[in-house]
Simulated assay, not measured.
Amino acid sequence: MRVYLPVTLAELQHVSPVLLAPRVAHAVTPALRTLWPDEDEEGWEYAAQAGAADGSLLLLAGSPDAPSLRVVVAADVPEACVRDLEDPPVPSAVEVVCRVELGQMVSVHVDEPAAAADVAAAATGDEFAIERLEDRDLLWYDVTEIGQIPAG
């Protein structure tokens, strides 16, 4: 099952063979499909990734020393490793209860460095910065490029 894990850049750069788990992640869930019945698989995947980007922003708000870029890791994990949340904050939210190994990571999605000021402001609750971030797409990186991701 494809999941989108919110992480920080600092956390990603310290990935040995494993990302932290359990954690709230995002996926294409039945609730997400119901919310947007006219969407296609790609649209639902984009919505799940956006939910994870918001989750990354929340992590940054709790870690003011972290580089100010939203980071999402796409990973394929066994369905048995994904559990529904009792009261999910958004329709795409799930819990990943197993370790996520580097070999399960498919791609990494990161803000471009020019977004760092907006990300930092959004992490402090700046509504205008949050709106500007909604208009930004995350850049795609292959897992082999993790060491080349700019820190902002």
Rank of each mutant, 00 (worst) to 15 (best):
R2E: 15
R2C: 10
V3H: 07
Y4L: 01
L5G: 09
T8D: 00
T8H: 02
T8V: 03
L9P: 00
L9K: 01
Q13H: 14
H14N: 15
V15T: 10
S16I: 10
V18P: 02
L20Q: 11
A21E: 03
A21R: 02
P22H: 11
R23G: 15
V28C: 04
T29S: 10
P30L: 12
L32E: 08
L35D: 05
W36C: 03
W36H: 14
P37S: 08
D40F: 05
E42L: 14
E42H: 09
G43N: 09
E45I: 08
Y46S: 11
Y46P: 01
A48K: 03
G51E: 06
G55A: 13
S56E: 04
L60I: 12
L60E: 06
P64S: 04
P64R: 02
D65G: 05
S68V: 00
L69F: 02
L69G: 04
V71P: 03
V72F: 13
A75C: 07
A75G: 08
P78Y: 06
E79Q: 13
E79A: 14
E79R: 14
V82N: 02
V82A: 00
D84M: 08
L85Q: 12
P89V: 03
V90S: 08
P91F: 11
P91L: 08
S92K: 05
A93L: 03
V94Q: 03
E95P: 01
V96F: 09
V100D: 01
E101T: 12
L102S: 13
L102I: 07
L102P: 01
G103N: 09
G103K: 15
M105V: 15
V106C: 04
S107E: 08
H109L: 12
D111V: 00
A115S: 14
A116T: 13
A116Y: 05
V119H: 07
A122N: 05
A123P: 11
G125Q: 09
D126Y: 00
D126A: 01
D126P: 03
I130F: 01
R132M: 04
L133D: 04
E134K: 13
R136K: 13
D137M: 07
L138H: 09
L138Q: 10
W140R: 15
V143A: 14
T144P: 00
E145H: 07
Q148G: 08
Q148D: 15
